[in-house]
Amino acid sequence: MSYLLNQLNAIRHLAEIEAMATSKKVITREEWEKRLNDVKVRKEDMNKLVMNFLVTEGYVEAAEKFRLESGTEPDIDLATITDRMAVKKAVQCGNLEDAIEKVNDLNPEILDTNPQLFFHLQQQRLIELIRNGKVEEALEFAQEELAPRGEENQSFLEELERTVALLAFEDVTNCPVGELLDISQRLKTASEVNAAILTSQSHEKDPKLPSLLKMLIWAQNQLDEKAAYPRINDLSTGALEDPAV
């Protein structure tokens, strides 16, 4: 973890110095590491980042353990994570009715004020009915629950038409809208509902760590134009690789 922050800080530092330089400067590994060591990152800040990741991604048990071990307080009631994960899981397993009821128990405002999310959950429910071959039920559900939403919103109508098109194909795996039956569609819906619950709890919907990684890659790319330096290419290990001279 700290490699990431250190690297970022060192890059920033260097970029400031290098801003005026015209030709590419070469920085040796030794020099770079010295710079890295000069950068101080507070342990509490790193712990907070870790906690933020665990909470946002829904790792309740890990978060609980980490709280005990590091003394970092999560910025959200851990019990609410359990509820949120139950919703996410229900969507991932295709139990949409269950998921909807759980969201409504958690906070009835979420689906009442977020028509797009509600539509996507209902659409997913329709997809599950089609997947299970319940054609009549699917048609009835589409007509009664989804068609009125399509009347309220043009883009919903288009999505609904695309979904119902699944019924028209014998071999759905090879039809143009086949991707709706893909497991990735469930994951997409699950992450949408996860984000909405987090927002309703005043919590950031994305963990901070991935954006930090994105920042690292961006910063390294920027610096590449100005200097040769020990780069981190393997993000999983964070190992520094010697500059090609």
Binding site: I100, E101, N104, D105, P108, L111, D112, N114, P115, F118, E145, P148, E152
Partner: peptide, 13 residues
């Protein structure tokens, strides 16, 4: 009551 709630949330009709 809960059933009623789940029926009407998000559903104007």
């Amino acid at each position: 009551l809960r059933e009623l709630k789940n029926q009407i949330i998000g559903n104007r009709t």
